[in-house]
Simulated scan of single mutants.
Amino acid sequence: MSTSAPRLAMVAGETSGDLLAGLLLGGMKSRWPELTAQGIGGPKMAAQGFEAWWPHDKLAVHGFNMEVLRRFREIWTIRRRLGDRLLADKPDLFIGVDAPDFNLGLEARLKAEGVKTVHFVSPSIWAWRGGRIHKIHRSVDHMLCLFPFEPQIYQNAGIAASYVGHPLADTIPLEVPRAAARQKLGLADGVPLLAVLPGSRRGEISHIAPVFLQTVASLARQRPDLRFVLPVVPGLRELVEPLVHAHAPDAPLTLLDGQSHEALAACDVTLIASGTATLEAALFKRPMVIAYQLSPMSWQIMKRMGYLPWVGLPNILARDFVVPERLQHDANPTQLAADVLAWLDDPARCASVQQRFLDMHHLLRRDTARAASDAIAQVLEAR
């Protein structure tokens, strides 16, 4: 191994994993300009010179439903073939970015054959499926944790771990560029705006976007001055447009090509699906209504495995219901519209939650790329 040009393998699934992995790669390439990385990834990683053998969206599934069962063989085959390829020509290090159901099994195989493994983004063992700590012990040489309470959990289990902060906290400015974002979206300062973010995967959009758009239609009738933007992940416009025509054909809604950060910076409130995007919304200091729907089977499994009263990352970090969460049957247009209006009609409450989110931003801002690179360098040197 050349310490100036390590050869890495990486796997990132879905849009959020690609975003995190792209930020991590950028930091590592600042330290090791000749670094090479290959595996499974998306456009953010490709922009950093990553060579994708399979696209990241091959790993995107939603819940515990027939979609997972239908795609199990395809995903299992990809993991086996990737493992074979990596063991035939071993990298200096493997980094699994999120996607624990895919990555932990691959990491266990690689680690057993002498490949050092790092996992970036702790699985939520503190929230559900805590028994995975044993599998993580077999799979991971070093865990990179996004949240400050996580490393102690791993250290207690004999797993090396580092708190590296959240890379989004480094890239999103402490002071929200609201005026610039509104100008970019063609919005005047006084126009109230709701950002609608129903997720980035086909499965979750199919489940959640209809009720979000029904909420938009209801709000448009109640508040004619309210405007709406919905960022669409590249490649999914053909899925979203028919849903808009079916559920909110007359609402003043603009579909954006990506631009989720501009939408969050510009909006007054966001209606948002549970996931990484809720943390992005918190870092943009946006009042939000978190909602999520799963298939009935997936919902029952999640309820049995869950430990915490919160599902949204901002609430988990705050250890409090600082923003409303509406799940399953509670995620209906009447309730969601009422929650959005409650934020719009209470400036003092909005200011209070924005201050809490600013404190959260400071806590998570740790120059993640450098901290993660320092931890990765220790693993490489130990090799």
Rank of each mutant, 00 (worst) to 15 (best):
S4K: 15
C267S: 08
A342H: 06
A112K: 08
G41N: 06
T215Y: 03
L380W: 11
V340H: 06
L35D: 12
R201T: 04
E14N: 09
S352Q: 15
Q335I: 11
H329P: 02
L264C: 04
L35S: 09
T276G: 10
R73K: 14
V11T: 14
D84K: 13
V11P: 05
P6R: 13
I272M: 02
S139L: 01
F120L: 14
G199F: 12
L194P: 09
Q378Y: 10
P324N: 13
P314Y: 07
D189R: 11
A37I: 06
F147P: 13
S352V: 11
K135Q: 11
F284V: 00
V191S: 09
A251S: 02
Y163V: 03
A342Y: 02
I172A: 00
L193C: 04
A377I: 03
A47I: 03
R85I: 05
R80E: 12
A331S: 04
H261L: 06
G41A: 00
G105S: 06
L213I: 08
P55W: 00
C267F: 04
F50Q: 12
F284H: 01
G114W: 06
L317P: 02
Q355F: 00
A181R: 00
A5C: 15
I301E: 01
A282G: 01
R80A: 09
I208S: 01
I153R: 15
I272K: 00
Y154H: 04
S122G: 11
A342N: 07
P6Y: 11
G131W: 11
R7A: 13
E14V: 10
I78A: 08
R356S: 00
D345T: 11
R326G: 00
L144H: 06
P347S: 02
Q378V: 14
L82G: 03
G39D: 12
R109A: 06
G63I: 06
A281G: 01
W126N: 14
L8H: 13
K303D: 12
L35Q: 13
G130E: 15
L20P: 02
Q222A: 12
D57I: 07
P324K: 10
P242W: 06
R319P: 01
H62K: 10
S274P: 14
S4P: 09
V240K: 07
A351N: 10
H261Q: 10
P231W: 01
A161I: 02
A217P: 00
T278E: 07
S373R: 02
Q328K: 14
L25R: 15
W310M: 12
D92A: 03
S218M: 15
A46W: 01
G235E: 07
K90C: 04
D101V: 07
M28N: 12
L35N: 07
W128C: 03
P210G: 03
D18I: 04
L110N: 08
D92T: 04
I136F: 10
